[in-house]
Design a protein around this nucleic acid. Structure first.
Length: 665
RNA sequence: CGCGGGAUGGAGCAGUGGUAGCUCGUCGGGCUCAUAACCCGAAGGUCGCAAGUUCGAGUCUUGCUCCCGCAACCA
């Protein structure tokens, strides 16, 4: 173990196809910022880099959808994201982007080193290719029927109905989700990182060495990957958006986005300083990656494997991954617009940057998912920041002005020994917890300083003592100690509440230790209450957004001709028997009287109907659908259901009873 | 049936073997310097259920029940 001389801190690169929301903030942007500010306050040498991740398939799809170039998309969001993060006040040394030439160069030379070291396996494989979109298809852009459970919308990597992991070639009737066409197989060459070998030679030991250092959930995830055994993973893709592979005759091939993205940390450092090599190659540097839980495998396994095989670089010391933040009890969803966007918060709550920092820190999903709600936001701001902290500071200020014209009196600690000791130990606790990545606990310790201060004022009762004979000395001691505690709070709070900390120094008229005789500035409130109205407005905004989204999201399927419709043979049938399919949550086995015959149909409606309740129900059946086995039962057709907004199902059936077997057209 | 996460006083959470704790809310009291704020006290939990290991379990084991999530996007 070499001595830590400097700290290199990275925060996961936000993907440049949408704005920043509170999940990004609580997940890694805020914790990394707090950590960095704490280190800087301790006088450590720190480099803090971030940027936008601008490559990968989703951006190309987005561009295609909006009929613009990928560059336009990422330009838009780079500015948007950078702007909102700056306005919120994050303390990056550099906020870069992966589409810059410096990043392409860095990535290409990194790749070349691995090539020259003969690290990669070049493999030719047959991949699905969409001839119309002129694009090779990533696994998840292929849909088809699951070979195991018969679910007809399984993805190329996994069937979400039965949970089995698949490869695209296993799918029955594969189709491209881009165009709906059947993809063709086409040969292609890619460069694979032999993670299986690297696991043996390096990763097993690397992960073991983090035992007791990394959070249990991070370690657990890594070990589960290693237990399953890593497989070689392609580090290149057939795509026209990304960092071109630096090999002759490799047109149309770019690096896998997860290969180049973490190299973005290196490029961002390079951009910030010519001494970048010291930051990345000297063993005196401690490297810390702040990420969300979905990034664990890339930062704990793949990137270290890359760095190690490259050979020149240091490896991450800490990877304090956070879990997810929910919003009002539901998963944050970009597509449903169920999110609190940073740029909207900044507009709706101007001057309340620290309030958001405070609330997000106190609910930070450090070890488990957490929930943000607007009521909770209001309660925490009003009951804690306003009532405890703001009020305490205001009391001290007002009393000092009232009794000593705002001049710090001469004082001694004779009446406040216990409180001052308590505050000193809390300050140490905050620092120590912060550098252990326990931000929630650190914040709570910080607030205990203000609680201690409030209690001290209450117990000392300077407003009484001032009226007593010779009470002035006691009051001077009380307020002197209070002002000193306030200064300690401001110092300790810098990493958590930087703007508040500044305001407090402003009230004290100096960042330096307050001295007797020094004049304080006029009292001013640190925080104001959040009104019920503004909270209601936010709640309504969320509700409205979801409604709007429902309206907009109705996109019709491609137009069909009458002949396509006429291919369907729809008929009315009646359910005469129904029973639950064993070992399947959603499936009911139905016997249908079709008039001309009896049929068995397996239908995924068990979560909505009891078997006994639907006997006699008339339903519309697609009669000429190819039979398919579901959970071992041959299903001869499909019944039509209407799905309501909330996901509940209702039978599509004739309004009044008709004879079984009646055609529907 | 598959994977994962949960179940602790009214709410939200902390607590990985040794007298069950925090914030908010409720009730009572104190104080009036302060943004109807602050301080003190109280009520309120058989820690989802059952069995087991142990001198001792919220904390470990097993079984069970219930809840949540599991297309993409996304921390």
């Amino acid at each position: 173990m070499s001595e830590v001389k400097r700290h290199l801190v990275t925060c996961a690169l936000p993907y440049a196809n949408g704005p920043i929301h509170i999940g990004h903030l609580a997940g890694c942007l805020l914790p990394s910022d707090i950590y960095v500010r704490q280190l800087r306050a301790q006088g450590k040498d720190v480099m803090f880099v971030c940027g936008t991740d601008e490559h990968g398939v989703p951006i190309t799809l987005r561009a295609r959808k909006e009929n613009v170039s990928p560059q336009e998309i990422v330009d838009r969001y780079y500015e948007q994201i950078k702007g909102s993060l700056e306005n919120w006040g994050l303390a990056f040394d550099n906020f870069s982007r992966t589409s810059r030439p410096i990043h392409h160069d860095t990535s290409r030379s990194f790749f070349k080193v691995l090539l020259d070291k003969d690290v990669f396996d070049e493999q030719k494989t047959e991949q699905f290719y969409d001839a119309e979109a002129k694009q090779f298809l990533a696994d998840r852009y292929i849909q088809g029927t699951c070979p195991k459970c018969g679910h007809d919308a399984a993805y190329g990597d996994q069937c979400e109905k039965c949970g089995s992991s698949l490869s695209p070639s296993e799918l029955i009737d594969p189709r491209s989700t881009l165009t709906g066409n059947e993809p063709i197989l086409k040969e292609t060459k890619n460069w694979y990182l032999p993670l299986d070998q690297i696991q043996e030679s390096f990763l097993n030991d690397f992960i073991s060495s983090k035992e007791g250092v990394w959070k249990p959930h991070v370690l657990g995830q890594c070990k589960s990957w290693l237990n399953d055994g890593l497989k070689p993973r392609a580090m290149t893709r057939d795509l026209d958006w990304g960092v071109p592979v630096p090999v002759d005759n490799a047109e149309g091939k770019v690096m896998y986005v997860w290969f180049d993205a973490p190299i973005g940390y290196i490029s961002a450092t390079k951009e910030a300083t010519t001494l970048w090599e010291t930051w990345w190659k000297d063993p005196g540097t401690e490297l810390t990656h702040f990420i969300g839980k979905d990034n664990i495998v890339f930062h704990c396994i793949i990137f270290p494997a890359m760095l190690h095989t490259h050979g020149d670089y240091i490896l991450p010391t800490h990877v304090p991954a956070n879990e997810f933040l929910n919003l009002e009890g539901q998963k944050i969803s970009t597509s449903r617009d169920h999110a609190v966007w940073l740029h909207e918060y900044l507009e709706d709550f101007p001057g309340r940057n620290d309030e958001l920092r405070y609330v997000l820190t106190s609910i930070m999903p450090e070890n488990a998912d957490a929930d943000f709600s607007w009521s909770d936001y209001q309660a925490r701001v009003n009951n804690e920041l306003v009532a405890i902290l703001g009020n305490w500071v205001n009391r001290v200020m007002v009393l000092t002005h009232k009794f000593f014209d705002g001049v710090i009196p001469t004082w001694d600690d004779s009446d406040a020994k216990d409180e001052l000791a308590e505050v000193a130990s809390l300050c140490e606790e905050v620092e120590s917890l912060t550098t252990q990545f326990k931000f929630r606990d650190a914040l709570s310790a910080l607030m205990r300083i203000a609680r201690t201060g409030n209690k001290y004022l209450q117990d000392s009762e300077p407003w009484h003592k001032i009226k007593e004979e010779g009470g002035e000395i006691a009051v001077a001691n009380c307020l002197g100690a209070s002002i000193y505690m306030m200064w300690q709070f401001a110092n300790t709070a810098q990493a958590f509440l930087p703007e508040t900390s500044e305001k407090m120094f402003e009230l004290l008229d100096s960042k330096e230790l307050p001295q007797a005789g020094q004049t304080l500035n006029k009292p001013a409130l640190l925080f104001e209450k959040v009104s019920d109205e503004s909270i209601e407005a936010q709640k309504e905004k969320l509700a409205n957004k979801e409604e709007d989204k429902n309206m907009q999201e109705v996109t019709l399927k491609d137009e069909i001709q009458y002949d396509d419709f006429a291919k369907l043979d729809l008929r009315v049938g009646e359910i005469i028997e129904a029973q639950k399919v064993p070992k399947a949550d959603r499936l009911l086995e139905l016997s249908l009287d079709m008039g001309f015959e009896k049929r068995t149909v397996v239908s995924g409606i068990a979560e909505h109907f009891n078997a006994e309740d639907i006997i006699g129900q008339q339903v519309i059946v697609v009669c000429n659908l190819a039979p398919r086995k579901l959970r071992g039962i041959m299903s001869q057709g499909m019944i039509l259901m209407a799905e309501d907004e909330d996901g509940t199902l209702q039978f599509a059936s004739p309004g009044t009873k008709v004879s079984n077997g009646s055609a529907v057209s």
